[in-house]
Design a protein around this nucleic acid. Structure first.
Lengths: 212, 212, 212, 212
DNA sequence: AATGAATGAGGCTTCATTCAT
DNA sequence: CATGAATGAAGCCTCATTCAT
């Protein structure tokens, strides 16, 4: 009835006329849909929060109809959980590998990691994760706990690992690293929140370039 | 959204009246109601967010009936705005005065301020403010902007003022203070968020005692 | 906003003008509502069945708004269950008492009971009960079981009791009564169903007057 | 409700073709599909009622996909009507023929008919017919009327014919037969309903063996 | 001032129906 | 012929808001 408003239906080379002339690539394949919907949900939830987000908004942003969303997620909550579980956990691995392979000075490594984080915040939609988790921690304690365990603790561990590495190599003065790691991470997280919250009316970055 | 032709909501007197001047000893405390409702709203909004919070929850927590809330605020939004404006702005004045009067070393002053902040986070319900603002920044951009201007900028200014004071007095090495102030504040804010989000299932404080 | 469409708002005697002139008896008292709603539900469920019945229909027939129904019943199912439990069980007691007190011949008693049943079928909305239970036995097995136990078995018991009474008094020839009771009841139930199903287009009664 | 400009739904050949004349041995059994779907629909409608039955349930039970159903019936209603018309009417012919050919005593004939009915109730899926008609009489009055006319009246007529036969032959005492026929049929119908409604949790037959 | 029964707009969810493959 | 992903109308239910008492 309605031609999907997104993804311009690419006109195909008019080859043989044996087939009906314009199969416009058909409604998007089953395989991609869940991710597209999750991405849309990420954006909408980040903007409005879980309760204020309307399923119709998510559907519209994903370029599908209301009903379609329910072919992939059984409910709004289900979608939210999938979002947190699959969408948000995704990119800590990169950092871990970076740490693994690196062999310059630890300070350098920290700076590198920081740079990567800042870049991710400025470009990746995943920067919305902290805002989403914070907003819904009251309504989805399990999600908050999950995030706390799988993302925050892992991230802190990563930094602490670098600090220990620096201490062992005599680069840093001795420290437990507990608080140092937190102090290191705090501005990064806040930068992400800053972007999620204030960028709409004030593009001044929170932490464009830091010099430690 | 809709202006009902009813009684204009009277704005609550801001700040803390150190002594209620002469409360007409009518039925009950009359001037207290709005504050009680606002306090209840603060708690509920912090827990659920604006959309998920129900007026009935707020009323119940304030110990009044649903209808009563509407005697003081014309709508849920009105209540939310009053909450942010009057409830949250309130306690930066204390910090400003503290800075004004202090005459020890600037490092001491910073530590004092930090201590006060940590204490406030652990005891005051206002610690929920950052979470509320972050959660609803998408739905109430004006509130976010307001908070940004009236609370964050003022708070940052306070810290920068101390830093400049320290630089002038030769206590700190020269710096613009821009980033230093942010780095100083980041963990404090994050501590408040930590408490608002994770305290429900994990009482480990984010930053129980820092040693700068 | 909307004046309730049913129950004409009775104009009251214009007495003193001290009060606002037309308090039209106010929205109906809390006490009566549940029964009114149940009665409406009975009628709608009988006509459409559970699934096809719309809550709005029930509300409209009860003369209230959609939301009001939910002040008294938490869901459509809840309402349905209340309907079966409270609405339908109600009128076997009458029969039991009748049997208790009677001291004529047993045949007379049976005829009396039959007459009462026929009369109830023709006048009481409870005649819709069998249709409702039959229709929803697949969707609400517990209700069907409940009805089977509390209404059918009790009713059959009543008839069997009379038959035994008749046998003991030498009025009837000896019989277990099992099948006799069923044969006695079958036409009665079918008369109720007949009315519920076919009366809409054919007023020919199923069993207007029987002569056993 | 809406006539789509697609292929006209071909009415299924009624009754039982004792021998499928010459099925073009195309892909699969072609003529069988509609009957299979109707049988599935019969079962699902009997269990859930029209509204609560999902086309997907019917399709699944028939072992086809959702879309396939629409190759044979234009809508859910269309399917329901076909079901009643073709599926339910089917087996009165047998009784009529039985009456035609029989030449024993009329009492014997009645007993024979009763036995056949009881047997059909216990084994045929058509036993669900009364329940279906009763359930949906409110939503499909024309179906109820159709059933009333084509099945009930015909059935009653059959019994009355036997009774008249008995009276003519001097086997029964004179009677109009009106009520007698009803009294004779009532337990049979009720037995079918009993099975449709209560068999799920209670296998006690309503009328396993009667001795008139 | 306070109450809480009543209202109805609006959101989540289901499911009959369509249609490209 | 058959499929099943997609659609969107429609229904249940929630909850902000009103208002007679």
């Amino acid at each position: 009835m309605k031609s999907p408003p997104l993804k311009s239906p690419k006109a195909q080379p008019s080859g043989e006329a044996t087939e009906p002339p314009a199969p416009q690539k058909w409604r998007r394949r089953k395989g991609a849909r869940p991710q597209e919907i999750l991405a849309a949900a990420m954006a909408v939830f980040a903007e409005k929060g879980f309760s204020a987000a309307r399923m119709e908004d998510v559907a519209a942003r994903a370029g599908v109809s209301k009903g379609t969303v329910y072919l992939y997620y059984t409910s709004k909550q289900d979608m939210f959980r999938a979002l947190v579980r699959e969408g948000i956990t995704a990119n800590l691995r990169t950092g871990a590998e970076m740490v693994e392979r690196f062999d310059g000075s630890s300070a350098e490594l920290l700076r590198l990691l920081l740079g990567a984080a800042v870049h991710a915040i400025q470009t990746s939609p995943l920067a919305a994760a902290p805002k989403i988790i914070i907003s819904e921690s009251g309504n989805f304690p399990e999600m908050a706990e999950f995030y706390r365990r799988e993302v925050i603790d892992v991230g802190l561990g990563l930094v602490m690992q670098i600090i220990r590495r620096g201490v062992e190599r005599g680069e840093f003065r001795a420290t437990g690293g507990e608080y140092a790691a937190r102090l290191f991470i705090a501005p990064v997280v806040l930068a992400a929140l800053w972007k999620s919250c204030f960028d709409q009316f004030d593009k001044t970055p929170f932490d464009a370039a830091s010099d430690n």
